[in-house]
Structure formats: structure tokens, C-alpha cells
Design a protein around this nucleic acid. Structure first.
Length: 548
RNA sequence: GCGCCUGUAGCUCAGUCGGAUAGAGCAACCGCCUUCUAAGCGGUAGGUCGCAGGUUCGAUUCCUGCCAGGCGCACCA
């Protein structure tokens, strides 16, 4: 679906092209016209700086170019006024009734409104969290749970075929330590050096022993506790509205000989070599700081071996783009992952994307709570949800760009006050639901059957329509830049505009006032706003309550 | 030493592909409920966009250098 702005942009592009054809402007026809929504309402509904951009190549005064385009843009359907301002900005004011037609589009498209096809035909593997199954998910995982899940929804809304994947690191030394730690806890022995501490280890030990009292070796403890811990992670993520299509076990990668297969493939590309009995991948061919070992001198496989095999496996399963969401403490992986893709013959700029998220700090009682899994003093996803609820936790984690280090203040989030923007947005939705319940009672139509767009001429109505028209562009931008926080910020803006409309524009008749077309038109505008709020909240995985 | 991220109002943070007078929430102050949900609305006050150069019609935005903070540079996982 093309948005109003896209349509207008295309119309202007045609008009500009005509001016070039007639020789009124010199130079090259621009491939696209960018429209922005001016902050200042006096500058119209949309503005473009195209005249300023064309001026240099054309060797003409920007105001002159703007004047050439002014009349032609004014003749576009739905445009009511075109002004030239400042150095050559073109300010466009739209006909209000034609803008109000947007209500029709939203109410007839419902949940489809805002969805697009910018990424149609692209198959994306979205990998996030990928924690060891050796403990509960903590706050760092939780940021990715919220942001990753939301990004998946946003990419899907842009038309991509998305597979969400959780890579289970169920192999190697950490798993062995985990097994030994649970065993020690069960048998009343001291936890080994570098082992896992924390109450949850005791809980796991008790549960595992209760299920099988004969359990004794560290391998048995490891396997039993692994199953319990993984199930716990899966269960808590479901309650957090975060769904994965595939839980991919590192062990399965080795069982299927994927590592050997990957080595063969990389060898055939000519980037594998051997030194001192170890097998290396020459990642320095493609910008890595040092070459990486795949098979150690003693024959063991490195963690990098799994990463490499996993990447090649993903590509062979047909994914065009592999997105990795990693914590800032893993940003050293970026170069080697990109280089690995290049070694496999792929285009690292297209086939691999790595999103690095900065770490999350959490404050409570004015003090920072340290996140140390080993020490056992961790804030888990479950604990955060217990403290602030799923909606507030998800919303807060999503509303900031991931490259910003963020501080969550539990005390603030617990207050359930307006300091949580999630309530501001949800309140707008609930408020509209209440208004619409009243329209039903009064017999006022809020659907399209009696909708008259020419009724909506108030400044507040116009402002609300303008905000609603932005939604498809916001979703497309969030998908394109992999930034779901844009959706949250937009919703806060939309909610604010609605609250302003609500304060100035009465929807229901006052007192014994007769029901008139304006009431019905405003009710439909409310319904359209509610639809967009619901659509946006759904992209965040946050509920849209009917009552608060 | 090298690399990545960050630096915007008292606090927490937005800021679109470079665009017009840099925004929001909280905190402060002043207003608005005898009719739709006041979890709301309106207003006042608050700024050297870390510092210095450069690119140009125009820089918070792009480039270079510097300062400050966070994180990382394994034949660990």
C-alpha cells in the first residue's frame, strides 16, 4: 500500500520531470522527491527542499526553481495551496476533505494499514538472545527479547519472510561446568572453581534429583538440568510475548557434520590453511585483525568453528540476510563474522547484518544492581516482569535505539505513572474505546457507511489526520533501518496528537444537542486512530487495552 | 596501542536523506473536570547540541583531530 506521502512524492516527481523536459530546469532529474512534515504548522502539511537541492547543478537561483514548480504542484489533485518560503522551500497545503479520505483507507484496511512491501521477496534469518542454557535469562537477554521480537514483527510488516531463531549454546566447557555445578549442589559438595553459583543451581539440583533419584554423574546432571533450564527459558519467553520459529542446537550442528561441510566449502573457496597442526581460516583476507582457528592443535573444534558452520548452514537453508543481534561485549565478532561470509563467497555487506546493542543498567533504590550471572546476583527477565509487568518492560526496552546504553529505573517503572510512556499510549487507545462504546449507546455511526470527510476541517482534526498518514512511512523506516524504536516514538506522538484533538473536539453531542454528521465523522476518525494505535502496539508486542 | 558505541535542558532521552525558531517526559511554576476515561489538556521557565577545525546556500546531523565515559581486542565459551 502506498502512503499519501508516497503518492504525493510521486506526483511531484512527475511534475519536476516535466519541467526538465520543457527545459525550464537544467541538469539531471532527481530519482525521488523527499517530503518532510514541517514542525511548524504555518509551513503547510508537507514541505520539500527539492528546489534548493537542484539549484547548484542547474546554476539557477533556488527561489526561481521553486517558482517554476509552484504552479505545477498546485495543480496536483488534493493540493490546495503551494507557498515558497525562505531560501526556496516549497510548502504544500492539502485540501482538508481529501486528506480526510484517509479515514476510509484505514477503516477498510484495518490491520493491514501500515503494512508494506518494501522488503517483499527478501528472506531473513533473525537470530537473537542465543543464551547458554545454563541459567535464567537476564536483563541483557531481555533487551534483545523485546527488541528482537519487535524487529521481527516490523520486518514482517514490511513484507519480508522472517524466521526468528534462537541458537542454543549446548556444547562445550560451559555446559560441562554447568553439569558439575548442579552435581556438586545436589551432592552437597563445593561448587567447582569457575562454576555456576546462585540459588537457581540449588533449585535445578533439587528438581533433577526429584525426577530421578539415581542420577549421579556430572554428565547425567548436565543433561537433566539442561532440559529443565531450556524449558524454563522457553516458557518465560512465551509469557514475554517473544516467539521463536526455530530453537537451533549447537550440538545438532556437529551431529549433522555441518562443521566438516563448512570446512569443505571454505577450503574450496581457498581461504583455509594449516599451521602447527591447527586449521585456520584466513579472515584477514577480508578485513579481520587476525586469522581465526577452526580446529585446534589437539583436534578440538573452537567456538568459531560452530559459528562458521552455523552461518553457512543458514545460507544453505535459503536465507538472503542473516541478522545477528549481539551485545556490546561481543562487538569484536563483527569483523570476523563479516570476513567469514566473505570467505564463504558471500557479500558481507548484504548477506550479514550485525546489530550491536549497548548494555542495560538497572537501578533500584538509587543504586545500580550489578549483573553477574556467575555470582548469582542477577536480575532475570522473570524478575523484571514481576516488578513492572510485560507491557512496561517490553515498551521501555524497545523505545530506545539499541546503540544507546540505557538505564532502567525499576522504581520509576513500578510507579505505573505517566513516566512510563507505555501508559500514555495505551491510555489513548482505552480512551477511544470508551468514546466508541458511548457512540454505540447513542446510536452514532462510527463506520464508513455514513462517513462524510468534508466534516473534518478543524485544525486538530487535520493534525490528527496528518499523524495517521505518517504511519506507513514510519513502519517502512523502522524496517529499513532495523529500528523498531521508531514505532514507539511515533505512537507517543500520535497519542499526544489524539489527546489534543480530544481536548478541543467534542465527539459526542453535548446535552440535548441533536446527532449531526460531525459526530459521526469524528467517531470514524477516532476509530481510525484506535486502529493505528492497535496496529503499532502490535508491532511492539504490547497490549492495546479497551479499558484502563 | 588498535577497534566499536556514547556525549543534546537540572534528570532520563528523541531528533528522518544535511533544512526553516533543536523537541518530549520527569522535576519547577501557573491555569483547565456541573457531560466523552484528568493515566488527560493548555501555558511559563529551562540549551556553548563535549571542544576545535573542515565540507556548503545551510551542520546536532557528513569528514578530520582532540577531550571524557562505556565496551572489546584468545588454539575461552
Amino acid at each position: 500500500m502506498s502512503s499519501l506521502a508516497d503518492q504525493l512524492s510521486a506526483d511531484i516527481q512527475a511534475v519536476v520531470a516535466d519541467a526538465f523536459t520543457r527545459g525550464e530546469i537544467q541538469g539531471e532529474v532527481p530519482s525521488a522527491i523527499t517530503l518532510e512534515r514541517p514542525k511548524n504548522r504555518d509551513h503547510g502539511d508537507y514541505a520539500t527542499s527539492i528546489a534548493l537541492q537542484l539549484a547548484k547543478a542547474a546554476g539557477q537561483n533556488p527561489r526561481e526553481i521553486a517558482a517554476i514548480l509552484q504552479k505545477a504542484i498546485a495543480s496536483i489533485a488534493g493540493v490546495s495551496k503551494v507557498d515558497i518560503a525562505g531560501p526556496g522551500f516549497i510548502n504544500i497545503t492539502l485540501d482538508r476533505a481529501s486528506q480526510a479520505e484517509l479515514v476510509r483507507i484505514i477503516l477498510s484496511n484495518k490491520y493491514e494499514y501500515g503494512r508494506g512491501n518494501g522488503l517483499a521477496g527478501v528472506t531473513i534469518n533473525l537470530e537473537f538472545i542465543s543464551a547458554n542454557p545454563t541459567g535464567p535469562l537476564h536483563l541483557g537477554h531481555t533487551r534483545w527479547a523485546a527488541v528482537g521480537d519487535s524487529l521481527g514483527r516490523v520486518l514482517s510488516a514490511a513484507g519480508a519472510a522472517v524466521t526468528r531463531e534462537f541458537y542454543i549454546n549446548d556444547r562445550g566447557r560451559q555446559m560441562d561446568l554447568f553439569g558439575q555445578s548442579v552435581q556438586a549442589a545436589a551432592q552437597g559438595k563445593p561448587i567447582p572453581e569457575d562454576g555456576y553459583q546462585g540459588d537457581y543451581i540449588n533449585d535445578l539440583a533439587a528438581e533433577v534429583v526429584a525426577a530421578d533419584s539415581n542420577i549421579s554423574t556430572s554428565e547425567e546432571f548436565r543433561e537433566a538440568a539442561y532440559k529443565v533450564q531450556l524449558a524454563q527459558q522457553q516458557s518465560v519467553l512465551e509469557t514475554f510475548n517473544t516467539h521463536f520459529d526455530i530453537w537451533f542446537s549447537e550440538r545438532s550442528l556437529h551431529e549433522s557434520k555441518a562443521v566438516d561441510h563448512a570446512l569443505d566449502k571454505l577450503r574450496s573457496q581457498g581461504h583455509v590453511f594449516e599451521v602447527d597442526g591447527a586449521v585456520w581460516l584466513r579472515t584477514t583476507d577480508f578485513g579481520d585483525d587476525k586469522d581465526r582457528v577452526i580446529v585446534k592443535e589437539d583436534g578440538d573444534l573452537t567456538y568459531f568453528a560452530s559459528d562458521t558452520a552455523y552461518y553457512i548452514n543458514k545460507r544453505e537453508r535459503g536465507f538472503d540476510i542473516c541478522i545477528y543481534m549481539l551485545g556490546a561485549d561481543h562487538h569484536g565478532y563483527v569483523n570476523r563474522l563479516k570476513a567469514t561470509a566473505a570467505c564463504a563467497g558471500d557479500d558481507p555487506a548484504y548477506n550479514v547484518e550485525i546489530l550491536i546493542g549497548q548494555l542495560v543498567k538497572i537501578m533500584e533504590g538509587g543504586e545500580e544492581l550489578k549483573l553477574s550471572k556467575r555470582a548469582g546476583t542477577i536480575i532475570t527477565l522473570e524478575e523484571l516482569v514481576e516488578k513492572v509487568g510485560v507491557d512496561a518492560a517490553r515498551y521501555t526496552l524497545i523505545r530506545y535505539p539499541v546503540d544507546t546504553p540505557m538505564v532502567m529505573d525499576v522504581d520509576v517503572l513500578r510507579r505505573n505513572s505517566n513516566e512510563n510512556p507505555v501508559y500514555y499510549v495505551q491510555y489513548a487507545h482505552a480512551r477511544i474505546a470508551a468514546v466508541l462504546r458511548n457512540t454505540v449507546e447513542l446510536g452514532i455511526a462510527s463506520g464508513l457507511e455514513s462517513f462524510d470527510p468534508s466534516q473534518l476541517i478543524h485544525d486538530r482534526e487535520n493534525e490528527l489526520l496528518g499523524a495517521l498518514a505518517e504511519y506507513p512511512r514510519v513502519v517502512a523506516g523502522a524496517a529499513q533501518f532495523r529500528e523498531p524504536h521508531r514505532v514507539a516514538r511515533y505512537l507517543e506522538e500520535l497519542a499526544g496528537v489524539y489527546h489534543g484533538f480530544y481536548a478541543d473536539c467534542r465527539v459526542l453531542p453535548l446535552g440535548d444537542e441533536a446527532v449531526a454528521p460531525i459526530h459521526s465523522a469524528r467517531a470514524a476518525l477516532c476509530a481510525a486512530t484506535m486502529q493505528v494505535l492497535a496496529n503499532g502496539l502490535d508491532l511492539l508486542g504490547v497490549s492495546a487495552p479497551e479499558r484502563m
